[in-house]
Design a protein around this nucleic acid. Sequence first.
DNA 1: CTGAAAGCGCTTACAG
DNA 2: CTGAAAGCGCTTACAG
Lengths: 328, 328
Amino acid sequence: MVTSRDVAKLAGVSQSTVSRVFVEGSSCSEKTKTKVMQAAKALNYRPNSFARSLTTQESRLIGLVFPDAEYPLHMKTLQLLSSTLQARGYSAVLIPWQYDDHNQHSIPNIFNYRVDGVIAASAQFNNHLYEECQQFSIPIVQFARVAHNSNSSFAISDNYNAGKMAAEKLKTAGVKRPAYLTGNIPTLTNSERWRGFNDTVLQLYGHAAGLLETNYDYEQALPLISQMLDQANRPDGIFCSTDLLAIALIDSARHQHQLRIPDDLQVLGFDDIPQAAWLNYQLTTFKQDFERLALESINILLAQLSQQTSHQTQLMIPVQLIERSTTR
Amino acid sequence: MVTSRDVAKLAGVSQSTVSRVFVEGSSCSEKTKTKVMQAAKALNYRPNSFARSLTTQESRLIGLVFPDAEYPLHMKTLQLLSSTLQARGYSAVLIPWQYDDHNQHSIPNIFNYRVDGVIAASAQFNNHLYEECQQFSIPIVQFARVAHNSNSSFAISDNYNAGKMAAEKLKTAGVKRPAYLTGNIPTLTNSERWRGFNDTVLQLYGHAAGLLETNYDYEQALPLISQMLDQANRPDGIFCSTDLLAIALIDSARHQHQLRIPDDLQVLGFDDIPQAAWLNYQLTTFKQDFERLALESINILLAQLSQQTSHQTQLMIPVQLIERSTTR
DNA sequence: CTGAAAGCGCTTACAG
DNA sequence: CTGAAAGCGCTTACAG
């Protein structure tokens, strides 16, 4: 590998001068700067980030914790996070997060790389990682969802309000027996959504909303969904915790119970994943602005890094109702 | 941060002894080893990987180039790649790959981190990255798809044979006018699939297969698909380049043209994404063994690293026909 | 503006 | 088996 010393030799300057040319805001004359740049280009020189990190004590590496669940949405988001990070001079290192206990020993070794910060997009997200981060005082920001008992910065959607809007929408659409369908991973974001929904149902209907807790996985969710649809007084309007669950519900209703949507059952999703717009579903749903959430998460994290503070920013942004054909 | 020197002081040994304890295969007595380990645990010591990389000249970082296209499949695969890498002592750094030219200057700076190798899961994958890798002699392995004009190791499915099997399946199912539906990103893997399909159609039917090239994106693919279905002598059996395209085809056929599947049109997919198994689609498709492809890619790359050779391994593994309800 | 030198936290011959 | 020392490739006071 070619080093700054090689470049220095070719350019006829000292090694420290070469270094200065590559450090933002170091003083050096235009003349030597271009001379060094030419030499660097000729030799195809790249400053070694590891050596740099060693002296500056910052790695410009951000750890990304993301869900291992099969969730159609996150690939695009991951791309956005990683390219935005790149644009701001950072790189993203994946922190594969296993839910099972015996794999948790794999976390510590990621900290050998001394990531400057962590973005956590995982729902199920226990205390281990928090403790590790705190121990090394690595700032952490939660993306799109927040775990229970967690105390960190986050950028999420305004879930309480989304729940409220969902209840109002169902009421307006003439639903008599509203219910909430959700998965089995407890998050604060999901609780808030339920709370907003139920508070409003209580207010508008004078009784609590129905609640069905199943699995976030399509296939595993089906049996319970089908069982619910079998009941005599089944709900006639269901707000779903995710679009994927809404799709499972629609599929079960149509194919296992010969129900028409929205005539026999109205369905409201949450996320606005690409599948929601497919001709076959045309799902009415709440769009989470993942693009903005990604940008804001990064802003929050980098601000925390540059200010060296542990001040926590907790941001909520509104969702938008996308009306398609699964509600009236 | 606590360093090996701190641990040494606490354990009453030299700094180099501490280092040896953390280096695989260094000689040291059991007694000092446990003594050092205790001290390390007490101080919550983590060897600094950057410092390590500086002397060993290997980073144990693998660059991951992945598609920015919205493709439902890859999240799970990414998870698998990253956790397998982790288990083998490596970490994954994301290399966000932009297709537009003006973003290509973002690639070089990733090499400041001196990744030991690169896994490329991107279809559209031009020469820039190859050249960079070659310049720094960073081995690269292509995952699941190979670009045209690329010359590197890869682990892919046996696409020619998949095409052959697809033609045979359609013939057996009584299809009269078989066609191939594909996207607009040229890859060798896709060409091979088409070649296998068309060679076999030629042989079984005595004439070439139909060919429709559209876009890999659902929404953008719809207009051309719909137009094709409008034609009088439209195909009655279509092999699709991806499951996503197959789903777009099914949706268009059912919702825009009132065609029944498989009665009026038989559909064959490729990939076996989760959506293929949804009640609404029950898509007959070829399952790519992504789990094995991920494992093998990593094996190939790490073997190349440890042997310090530039010997290229090119691996093809078979696909499996999953019969569901979109064919007879 | 620039050079010489110390130091970041490790690994690894080299002695003992 | 273990310690002292050199070196990996940078950055950053410190002088000039």
